[in-house]
């Protein structure tokens, strides 16, 4: 890891937006805050590529663009291959003297569909080949661009338009795929989770992902008021609660070594700070049906799975489980 970049909130606020205003994202969109902060963390010449999805469509409605950096979209399932092609081209053209910049960072951005599901093959391949780029997953936990259909990233019990809460089925029956662990299992140099509420942590992790040589994977939590049936004002609050309930813990895996990030570490050290998942679920319309006698038990199940995953993570991070 290179020297830590020191910055103040003024530095960040002053830095021009490379993801520009006027984008067509819904009001209160968590993913756009993620993108703004992500682009604030860039360190120099950068090329961005985005998979088909919310962030692509809201930012590139021809003839308008929200991207102040070179940017390309090609399809849904292949953004890691986009990055691979760009990285390979830059590398060889630099060698041949046709790229004058000493270094060009490459960032691939995809939603949960373009990462967990349809994009997983291209992602796994690019990671295995060791291309030097940062893959950023903005996880709004369903196919929001096409109208809230379930994905491998949709959590247990969430209602989506393809996992609706009916009279007998309580929303999605399966748990969220542990995508970040899957990426860590690729033994790439940098894997991390982040939440935009903890904006400083997100920026630092983005910068680390760019600085590291080889592939980096950053999983960012991105509340979606439209799809989660939440108040537009609550997106950052939910991004905070997800961490506080350990539904979405913050951690890094650097060269195979797991470590908790500060907000989650604080909970590990003071387990009484860990909030019940109920507090997080009750703010969201997608979990509304769980607060009825018929499906109430599922909240306990969600709590149980959240706790199990948290304990497993603590173990990986070398934090004694007995403490919690």
């Amino acid at each position: 890891m290179q020297s830590e970049w020191k910055f103040t909130s003024k530095d960040i606020a002053e830095k021009p937006d490379l993801f520009m205003s006027g984008h067509r994202a819904c009001a209160g969109c968590g993913a756009t805050t993620v993108l703004r902060l992500l682009m604030k963390a860039t360190r120099g010449p950068t090329i961005v590529t985005t998979a088909t999805g919310c962030m692509q469509i809201v930012s590139s409605m021809y003839p308008y663009t929200s991207w102040a950096v070179p940017w390309v979209h090609t399809a849904f399932e292949n953004v890691a291959a986009n990055a691979a092609g760009i990285e390979a081209a830059i590398k060889i053209m630099k060698k041949k003297g046709r790229v004058k910049h000493s270094h060009v960072d490459v960032i691939a951005i995809a939603g949960d569909g373009g990462t967990y599901d349809i994009g997983l093959q291209a992602l796994s391949g690019a990671m295995e080949r060791g291309h030097d780029f940062l893959f950023v997953l903005y996880d709004n936990e369903a196919y929001m661009n096409t109208g809230i259909q379930r994905s491998g990233g949709t959590p247990l019990g969430a209602a989506t338009t393809t996992s609706p809460a009916g009279t007998v089925v309580p929303g999605k029956l399966e748990t969220k795929k542990p995508i970040t662990e899957i990426m860590a299992a690729h033994e790439i140099p940098y894997v991390a989770t982040a939440s935009p509420y903890y904006w400083r942590d997100l920026i630092i992790k983005t910068r680390r992902g760019l600085e590291v040589e080889g592939p980096a994977f950053l999983h960012v939590f991105a509340p979606c008021p439209r799809g989660w049936r939440t108040d537009t004002a609550k997106s950052m609050e939910l991004a905070k609660l997800a961490v506080e309930t350990c539904v979405f813990p913050l951690w890094e895996c650097i060269n195979g070594e797991y470590q908790l990030s500060a907000p989650s570490k604080a909970i590990a050290l003071s387990p009484e700070k860990k909030k019940p998942v109920r507090e997080y679920l009750q703010l969201q319309g997608r979990f509304r049906h769980l607060f009825t006698p018929k499906f109430e038990k599922l909240i306990d199940e969600i709590q149980k799975i959240t706790d199990q995953r948290w304990q497993r993570l603590l173990k990986k991070c070398g934090v004694s489980a007995s403490k919690t």
Binding site: T74, A81, G85, I86, A88, I92, A122, S124, G125
Partner: peptide, 28 residues
């Protein structure tokens, strides 16, 4: 040869990587 040779995991990614490499200015 002075060529970046990318052994992709599928033809879909092969075409994709050629596409973006070409858009970056490379002969592909």
């Amino acid at each position: 040869v002075e060529t970046a040779f990318v052994c992709t995991e599928s033809e879909h990614s092969a075409m994709t990587a050629c596409l973006t490499a070409a858009l970056t200015g490379a002969r592909t």
